[in-house]
């Protein structure tokens, strides 16, 4: 394992380039992304942690195998998210069968971002807010949940979401608007009363 402090200062793109020559450098990229990607897998699939970890391992192997296919015009983080998403999709059936329906791997700031964009009041206790948002997200159609997760929980911009989902930016904007509406509808259906600002 390479622990050179020099490597820690390098960008993802530089590390990807170096990994092609020196296998161990890839370990630094794994360390950088393992937390984020594991959370992302859990958020979009709602599967068990053990299954998510298996997917994560397969994802990193795929990333390594496809390093030469990385387009330096894109952000490395968008590229790795795209591969992760593809891996989740190709394991979708297996994951669905073992899903636990958990999306609560979320930081406070992310909840506030989503709540604020949906004009949900912040008067609710953080714990309640988190539970409310999680419950609603878990019950949502995966295609809407996914876009909300990318925008608010993974904090990706439109361009990145467009690349990850392989959809035009206009479509992403439409999808996001619909997802927000569906979020409120879903909450109402579930009998959850959201207080709007």
């Amino acid at each position: 394992m390479v622990h050179s402090p020099d490597l820690q200062t390098k960008t993802d793109e530089e590390l990807a380039e170096l990994s092609l020559k020196q296998q161990e450098v890839f370990g630094v990229l794994i360390q950088r992304y393992q937390e984020r990607l594991l959370r992302y897998i859990l958020r979009i699939s709602g599967t068990k942690k053990e299954d998510a970890e298996d997917i994560l391992q397969d994802t990193f192997i795929k990333v390594y195998q496809n390093l030469n296919g990385f387009d330096p015009k894109q952000k490395f983080s968008s590229w790795i998210y795209r591969i992760t998403r593809n891996e989740v999709i190709s394991n979708y059936r297996k994951l669905q069968a073992r899903a636990e329906g958990r999306t609560d791997y979320v930081e406070e700031s992310a909840f506030y971002a989503l709540a604020s964009d949906l004009d949900i009041t912040r008067d609710i206790e953080m714990k309640d807010l988190r539970q409310t948002i999680c419950k609603v997200l878990e019950e949502m159609d995966p295609k809407y949940r996914e876009v909300l997760v990318l925008k608010y929980l993974e904090e990706k911009d439109y361009k990145e979401i467009s690349y990850i989902l392989k959809k035009p930016m206009g479509t992403v904007a439409t999808l996001l608007n619909r997802a927000k509406k569906r979020f409120t509808q879903q909450a109402t259906t579930m009998g959850i009363e959201l207080k709007y600002v």
Binding site: Q23, Q34, L67, N68
Partner: peptide, 26 residues
Amino acid sequence: MTDKDFSKDILQQIKEKQITPKPKWE
């Protein structure tokens, strides 16, 4: 979230299975 360091396992797997990046020409 996780205390596990995946890098060791994954690099081990890459070595054992002799996984290499696909060539650029592909």
